[in-house]
Design a protein around this nucleic acid. Structure first.
Lengths: 209, 209
DNA sequence: CCGTCACTAGACAGATCTGTCTAGTGACTC
DNA sequence: GAGTCACTAGACAGATCTGTCTAGTGACGG
């Protein structure tokens, strides 16, 4: 419904674009409604007619960010053949985003830092993180790792750590460095033994069984 | 100067304690001055006489948090003999903090997320991060790793990722998991070859030389 | 006894924020 | 031509925030 065929974007779209730009670049609490409507070139009543409240606009902004990230990762994974290449492909997709100009850290981490513990922001962030965690765990399972959950968790640390380093240390090579570290973890993680003993992980092994 | 011998803490101390508790638990922007002075049991004029502004009180809060973290790490490292044990000791010190009740993520990450890009908050966070990065790099150098800077960077990803997972996923075992991942990276990283060829890293090796 | 010092209690100013409400405009359809 | 729909412009209310200012209190030292 409400399909716009013409060239001029609707107030809803312009508001979302303005919110995306301002909330991501400057933070959610520090950007007021007036800034958003001014940047969108839209009346204040349009915002409250379409989104209802600032909180719901913030929710729409985060959903947009999340879907972009998921699309980007899925797009990269389509061109990867093996599960191992796809696991590393997650980090390559992230590197694309991290090295693009204007990257200022994970929008979910930043929004959650500004929000109360149990807000709708936390819920959206949690859903997105669960999606990524599930993706990593599934791929690790396909690879035949003995403990795909633990491996996915460690890979997730690298993923988050790299995003954080770009924001806090202006370390633009963090994505590539995280990919290298991920490759090391993949090479070292123990596989399930089908018949005999697959290579049993250098370093320390075996959780308490 | 201004040493208080008696039992009742000064307004300065009570303010800092209240700021520490409220800013860390609820965020900086969302906690107003009135909440802080009420919680400290102190008059508003006392705050502005001692700290001058909210921003400076926030700075004092972050300095306090940072010094506590550094003290905790240094204390653990004193009981570790080898450089490798000390590197892992950093993660063990972090695990202590991460599993203590009331941990809500890295205060620097959260404060930076709320602050403009170039504020005093960012400066304090940057200094603390540089300290940790330097510590990791120095220990990696002592261990004899061929590229201590890269290894320290990857360990830092794990460190930040674990803290983030505790906050965003309520993953209370993240600290221990990060320590295990760190051990794997340590075992796999190439050492400098003194005479012949030291074990040359499984997985992929060698940056473009 | 008197001055100093650290502090309290709270009114106040000025700014800013979210959200509501009124009035009106332009395009499109029946 | 009339009605509907999406939208604009901006005043307004009510709350909240930082920071200032006045007036006063109690302890302590010389």
């Amino acid at each position: 419904m409400t399909a716009r065929t013409a060239a001029k974007p609707s107030a809803r779209v312009r508001l979302l674009e303005a919110a995306d730009e301002l909330f991501y670049n400057e933070g959610i609490q520090t950007v007021g409604i007036d800034r958003v409507i001014e940047h969108a070139g839209v009346a204040k009543a349009s915002l409250y007619n379409t989104y209802g409240s600032k909180e719901q606009l913030v929710g729409a902004y985060l959903e947009l960010r999340g879907s972009r990230v998921r699309d980007r990762i899925n797009r990269v994974l389509e061109s990867r053949a093996t599960p191992r290449e796809r696991l590393l492909g997650v980090f390559e997709a992230q590197s694309e985003a991290l090295t693009s100009s204007g990257y200022h850290g994970c929008p979910f981490v930043r929004a959650t830092a500004e929000a109360p513990e149990d807000s709708s922001i936390s819920r959206i962030a949690h859903d997105h993180r669960a999606w990524l965690r599930g993706l990593l765990t599934g791929l690790a399972t396909e690879c035949g790792y003995a403990d795909p959950g633990s491996l996915a968790r460690q890979l997730h640390f690298l993923y988050d750590g790299a995003a954080n380093a770009v924001r806090m240390d202006k370390d633009s090579g963090a994505g590539a460095a995280a990919r290298e570290a991920a490759a090391v973890l993949l090479a070292a993680a123990p596989l399930t033994e089908p018949g005999g003993a697959a290579r049993p992980a250098p370093g320390m092994a075996a959780q308490t069984p």
